[in-house]
Amino acid sequence: MSPRRLIVLMAVLAIAPASMQARSVCRHFGTHTGWSVHASWATPSDLSADLFVNGHVGNYRYYGLDVHDIYSDYHGLTLSAGTFSAGVSYKFNRWLSLGADLDLGFLWNERFSAVDDSSKGVGTGVSLMLVPKFRVYYVDRPSWRLYGFIGMGVAKYFGYDKLKGADVDPYSGTREFWDYSLRGALQFVPIGVEFGRRIFGFFETGVGNEYTGVRGGIGYRF
């Protein structure tokens, strides 16, 4: 982005809230500024499921399998309880709020030995995410609102076996450990709806590390 465009964007961001505030005072539209908290449940994240099952995002396979890869454990159906979240946000004006969500996602599957097909028990993966959010309200009415947001944060994956491991260097013979269980997290929600005043419900659809599909929850506005 050029410096000139950046200055124009900053000017719009600085002026727009005041403009919106003025309109809201005139017409008595929209909700008050201030804090709110919410709790929700969402369908599981496709990205997290990929990381749990494959250790990478997508369905592609690495070529050049070694012998131990061929005899690595396989698994049954991968199930999930979805993503549970709790969050807080602050509404600055009629169109902008900033906040953050703390998310907890659960996945599990039964593992089997490829050598003798015996069960090796259930493997469980837990994802813990902290995702700050930039939320924009498209429509702001006292009893309902339309919004969208982008969230960017961090995720820590516990029990995701394929994100951690060790390799033996073929030249030096030394064992090298690697751990990719701490990663960035992104969430994009193009559309969501809030309904209610002080106590409100919400329903949204989006894609990212927090969830893929839909999320619903309840909240309280202070």
């Binding site: 099952v53 396989y74 199930l79 599957n109």
Partner: peptide, 12 residues
């Protein structure tokens, strides 16, 4: 009971 993957990762 939300099934998120039905692949098995069977490589043998």
């Amino acid at each position: 009971s939300c099934v998120v993957r039905d692949s098995s990762g069977y490589m043998r």
